[in-house]
Amino acid sequence: MSNPVIEIQNLTRDYGQGRGVFDLSFSVEAGEVFGFLGPNGAGKTTTIRHLMGFIKPRAGRVRLFGQDCFAHAGELHRQVGYLPGELALPEELTGAGMIRFTAGLRGWKDTRDADELARLLELDPRQPIRRMSKGTKQKVGLVCALMGEPRLLILDEPTSGLDPLMQSRFVELIGRARARGATVLLSSHLFEEVERTCTRAAVLRAGRLAAVQPMEQLRRSKSRRYVFTFADPETAAAAAARWPDARAEGVRLTARVQGGESLPALLALGAEYGARDLETHGLTLEESFHQYYEKEARQ
């Protein structure tokens, strides 16, 4: 495909002590919902600051719709909805005031679609922002970013502070944006968030690109921890002996499964030894990728 919406070539910005981004290159095509994954401090926000034209690249090129992000920031932003990672809404405004202010800066009179978004997110925008909870502020930020149906959405940690129900609403909103052909870049340190919304994702570690893969492929590398509880420690130890890398502690057995292909076998093992309880834990991105790369290195 040609004419990518987002194009980053050899972007480098060194903040010293290993912080920053280094020789980053990737592109996002029109209509993609692109996940930008990485632990805190991996360089996600730094990359987004470049995309928004807040800072100039020290080396490399950053372009949106084929135009330089810094030089043409003003014009480009007509087509971009942006949600900052650090919200920093002007505290003296009400939610509605902030929405009107954002619409005004964009030169719109009509805020009807903002009302619709607020309704979907169950936001009462009349309170002053300084009295809002973190989650409510996040909703105000989302309304400001999504209103007016921009062609490109750049969302930095969009669901932070939202409860699970609102996270689902957010997934729905991204689905709508995708349906109308918008391109989305969404950063997160949570695998699940990206998994639920994105078609492709880049993984960033310590400012460098670790992988850019379709979601399906990344999902296979994701691992989960399963904890079984057995009747007594002996049973737990016996079951652990039959599973690679499994660990028994007292009556509890902890096993890891990557990608889910061997899950039926693990469940069968648990059943065979008469498991009384089963807990599942998603690994953090860092843990799961650490494991993923370890495995690759061994092969």
Binding site: A73, R78, R106
Partner: peptide, 17 residues
């Protein structure tokens, strides 16, 4: 200082304006 400048810079206004 507060970081709210992000909202202004994200608007379709050239910095000059």
């Amino acid at each position: 200082d507060r970081g709210s400048m992000a909202w202004l810079l994200a608007a379709p206004l050239p910095r000059r304006r």
